[in-house]
């Protein structure tokens, strides 16, 4: 698993906005803060970001508005030209691509979903979904067949001939999702896809999204300003502030061990037991095997709450999906998490 090359690998990526960003970055002394840079007349969209995204992983980039998360994801697809650092997609430096190769890359490998949907208002649902296929010159018949397939996948069957303005927000975003999936991308970017939706619809769409992801298993970069959403979806979360990544880790680790005061502020009001999994709290067995039925490694502490409270054993074995024991859960430790004292 770990030896595999990452799908997206970026190292020391900078994105500055201003009159002569490259020149400025080249001469910039190390350790200048976001505010220092702003005083020099530049805005740091992305500040020295290094992160790898593995195949099949869902990385959620979380931050408040203006934290640079949208800018970062646009650097991944080179919608923004970066100022410094390198970004490799499947081992290929995307900054080195010429226009044609870049277009090829986007046509075949990448899909993107936008916050305000970015649908073409003059095209029907079908035509919107088929748009990327049309751009790469697929013939009419193939286009239509594939588009109908994805439309069905996102549950919009029967609405193919509607125009975007005839649909609700949730439906429009389904079109956006369908369009981004039409070319069967390896990498899927979602820029706050559910932020513009009502809370109830948002929840429904998240479920829908999880269902799709389970089915498709794409490499995903998902952007949100909603910490709950991040916790709910992520394999790993990258929390951004002022263009830099404050912490990048699994949801469990972030709530259990926030790296900076800024991250801590997010985690304070979170019910940790909903996030933390038994697997994470488990300590190595060191040959000692506690008695009784093991608990599931993939269960959250909240899911185990009743059992933990009623349990008589102090140490519980933890087993993974295949029934293999992977460690020992200390009951007291788990109860602390449950009561918010961890």
């Amino acid at each position: 698993m770990t030896t595999q090359t990452p799908v997206i690998s970026c190292a020391n990526v900078w994105k500055l906005f201003g009159p002569h960003p490259k020149k400025y970055l080249a001469n910039m002394p190390a350790g200048r803060s976001f505010d220092d840079i702003r005083k020099d007349g530049y805005i740091a969209g992305v500040r020295d970001v290094s992160v790898d995204i593995n195949r099949g992983e869902m990385l959620v980039v979380m931050g408040l508005s203006g934290s640079g998360k949208s800018t970062l994801v646009r650097c991944f697809s080179r919608l923004h030209e970066i100022t410094g650092g390198t970004i490799e997609v499947d081992g290929q430096d995307i900054m080195a691509l010429n226009d044609r190769d870049l277009i090829e890359l986007r046509r075949n490998k990448m899909g993107m979903v936008f916050q305000s949907f970015g649908l073409l208002p003059h095209r029907t649902v079908l035509e919107n979904v088929a748009f990327p296929l049309e751009m790469r010159g697929q013939d009419r018949h193939d286009r239509r067949e594939r588009a109908l397939e994805v439309i069905k996948l996102v549950g919009l069957e029967g609405r193919e001939e509607y125009f975007p303005r005839e649909l609700s927000g949730g439906q429009q975003q389904r079109v956006g999702i369908a369009r981004s999936l039409a070319i069967e991308p390896d990498i899927w970017f979602l820029d706050e896809p559910f932020s513009a939706l009502d809370p109830l619809i948002r929840r429904e769409m998240q479920d829908e999204f999880l269902r799709l992801q389970e089915m498709l298993g794409k490499t995903i970069v998902f952007i949100t300003h909603d910490f709950d959403e991040a916790l709910r979806l992520a394999d790993r979360i990258a929390i951004m502030k002022d263009g830099a990544i404050e912490q990048c880790d699994t949801p469990d680790q972030i709530v259990l061990n926030p790296a900076t005061p800024y991250v801590r502020k997010f985690t304070e009001d979170i019910e940790k037991s909903r996030v933390v999994h038994a697997r994470v709290l488990a300590t190595p067995m060191n040959g000692h095997i506690p008695d009784g039925t093991p608990i599931r490694a993939g269960a959250t502490i909240l899911q185990l709450a009743r059992q933990l409270v009623n349990e008589t054993r102090e140490e519980l074995p933890v087993a993974n999906g295949n029934g293999e024991l992977i460690g020992i859960l200390n009951r007291q430790e788990a109860l602390d998490v449950l009561l918010g004292e961890g």
């Binding site: 890359l105 990448m110 899909g111 970015g118 003059h122 095209r123 748009f131 049309e134 790469r136 369009r179």
Partner: peptide
């Protein structure tokens, strides 16, 4: 976003103008 959607679909410049900008 419409522009970016067009770009992400891998539109060439002419395709952008013809299919994205002018209709939008």
């Amino acid at each position: 976003e419409v522009v970016e959607a067009g770009n992400m679909a891998g539109s060439t410049r002419w395709q952008m103008l013809r299919h994205v900008y002018l209709p939008a």
